[in-house]
Amino acid sequence: MNIKIINKSEHPLPQYETAHAAGMDLRASITEEIILKPLQRILVATGLFIELPIGYEAQIRPRSGLAYKHGISIVNSPGTIDADYRGELKVLLVNLSDTVFKIVNGDRIAQMVIAKHETVVWQVVEALGETGRGEGGYGHTGK
């Protein structure tokens, strides 16, 4: 799949790091380092602009290493970039740890997965089909 991209950062384009990776790392494109305090959230620029085909989205997800080692995540995880969005890709990071975290230009801050999605047409009905689970949810199995 070809996707149009504008790169206004000084960093390489996002790429797959392994042959079967689903996500591509996004890098911070900032002029000054960011100190992210505990429980603080901030929008971090990437310098990237994309044009997705209709029927696709870009999902912005946390990097597992940052989450595990430093408690850095994404507030609205996964974030969704819609096919009609043309603005700069930015990542809404949050520091869930009890220590400050420093972000510098070029740091890998998130990953992006391109995914196909469907557009639904609602069919209003009076009843839904029966299943073994029924309305059970939120720990209903007791496990």
Rank of each mutant, 00 (worst) to 15 (best):
M1N: 11
G79V: 03
A58T: 01
L92Q: 04
Q123L: 12
R63D: 09
Y16G: 02
L36G: 04
M24R: 13
F49E: 15
V75W: 01
A28T: 11
T119Q: 14
R63Y: 02
N2R: 13
P53F: 10
Q59P: 01
I81N: 09
E57P: 00
T18A: 05
R86K: 15
L36I: 10
L26Q: 03
P14L: 10
G137F: 06
P78W: 04
F49D: 07
S64G: 07
M1T: 10
H140N: 13
R133I: 09
V94E: 07
E88Q: 11
S64M: 05
V94S: 01
G23E: 06
E51M: 03
S29V: 01
L36M: 03
I30V: 14
I114H: 06
G132D: 15
S77P: 04
M112D: 07
G87L: 11
A58R: 01
K37S: 09
E130L: 11
Y68N: 08
Y68P: 00
L89S: 07
L13I: 07
A115I: 09
D82T: 08
G23Q: 05
T131P: 13
I103S: 10
L128Q: 13
R108S: 07
Q59T: 00
K37I: 00
P14G: 13
V91S: 03
K8S: 05
T80E: 01
N95P: 10
G134K: 12
K4F: 06
